[in-house]
Design a protein around this nucleic acid. Sequence first.
DNA 1: GCTATTTATGCTCATATTGAGTATAAGCCG
DNA 2: CGGCTTATACTCAATATGAGCATAAATAGC
Lengths: 300, 300
Amino acid sequence: MTTQMMIELIAVLTAVRDDVPQVMTIDHGRLLPSGPLESTHRSLQAGVRAWVERQTGHPIGHVEQLYTFADHDRLLGAEQGRMIAISYLALTRSHAGETGWRDWYDYFPWENCKTDAGRDCLTIIERLLCKWVAGMDNAAVRVRQWQRCVTLFAIGDMVAWNDELVLQRYELLYEAGLVAEAGCTPESTVPGRAMHHDHRRILATGMARLRAKIRYRPVVFELMPEEFTLLQLQRVMESLSGVHIHKQNFRRLIMQQQLVEETGGIEEHTGGRPARLYRFCGEVRQARYLAGTKIPLAQP
Amino acid sequence: MTTQMMIELIAVLTAVRDDVPQVMTIDHGRLLPSGPLESTHRSLQAGVRAWVERQTGHPIGHVEQLYTFADHDRLLGAEQGRMIAISYLALTRSHAGETGWRDWYDYFPWENCKTDAGRDCLTIIERLLCKWVAGMDNAAVRVRQWQRCVTLFAIGDMVAWNDELVLQRYELLYEAGLVAEAGCTPESTVPGRAMHHDHRRILATGMARLRAKIRYRPVVFELMPEEFTLLQLQRVMESLSGVHIHKQNFRRLIMQQQLVEETGGIEEHTGGRPARLYRFCGEVRQARYLAGTKIPLAQP
DNA sequence: GCTATTTATGCTCATATTGAGTATAAGCCG
DNA sequence: CGGCTTATACTCAATATGAGCATAAATAGC
């Protein structure tokens, strides 16, 4: 009855470079950093850190658990028992061009609504989903699924785009047969890079978690350099969420929450008036850290 | 190097009975329902459902993953490899007095700030924590730990009580040696029932997750009967969060979000004017479901 | 030097949301 | 009937939010 299991640790390691969110990959972008839990690992987190740091050389800041999977897809041999995958979200500061980093939006172009490429991709998806539901026999099912498409992809502006529904959107596209999870279908009809196994889905889970978390916890600062201007901070937030932010309101909210303090330094090369430099000071203000953070994320 | 693992599934099954949140236990309240993942289970969720329904007879509504643990405390024998525990939060409607149900606040009396018993417990904790930090050598550490106590337990009204920090509070008490996790220390100085292994900690994780989730997703309705009055709904929310809610504002927010619709029925025996009965209608309004829910949770 | 352009930063204003309270309705109990 | 309870509608002030105007201070082109 009871079977022994193999445990695999998988990391969605994210950094932001030149205002583009990136994820660490191996195998030419087809796999996330991952490896089996070993007896030398003192804990699951330690195991993830070991695997990731072996591949990047970076110390990782924030690490948090994402999800534990054990689908029947993940069966090993009949006698060997099942494979269980424990996934983690890890954040690190900007890197100096090591290999393995790939843009988030290479895998999920439709999630980058800020850019023309993202909007074009959404147009394609809209048409394909329309065709998908049109081909359904049952009218009630057709209506319900179209409703789902409309809310998830904000079709027709009836509903606002919700940037946190990365996973739900991916799963809808997967159900509709518009993405190839295993990468073995070269005629995948929606733009975007595929990954092996369910790694693309795990990446979606990590993106969704991070987009949700930056709204109420000051985790963005794990991705920022020691000193930064407020516009740099805003650009990072925007690139992660894929949504525009009203500049003046963003500053207002950041300042009034006292998450940052001036370093006294000035960034000269802004292309305009020089900007003040700030540093994160929420670590010491533990009260505020636990109380949570608010970020204004407006619609395009 | 790579070791095989035993997987244990653990459920924090919650229901609300007579406005008191309860958790399903076994072994006279000393363990959460749990059992090993078996090869007959089609998925992890299915395994949890199987274990829980075997013990309660109830169909469970909402099930969501909480956390996966693999502490070194959880070692089996040297050769047998480690034990991994995957915990789940499960919700079910009110039950008719089966055995095994225990009040949340038997284990965490201090989390029930609404009641006098809860406030008394907090007074005791405040004194004990004060003594704990006073006994520290390093002044800097003492200040930092006292700051932590103040923010987590809202000591001295400098910070508002945050009902979601159940786990952080428990871990602080544990660090301070004020609770006995294994239940083998009869002289545990803080009120509250103990559990075996780390089950009390897992319960804390579940409580924290549920308290956080009811604020932005309509999961409360999983705990409600088919028809209910708005006061009944409010009482359930209050008992889960352990915090008072302003009645009129609560109604306003629930109504304007259109999460419920009138059934046309009337609850006569309210002790005052009869109340209208409502039912949850958010399942059909998927847009609103995905968009999220807001609940006003004020301070005492 | 002057002007257009760019970014930084301060401030205003209408609107929406929230917290708190008042007022009235409609049942029960003695 | 008056006194109690709960239900429900509405008001009002304080805050928060979304959107925009205005000014400051740099650079680039002429």
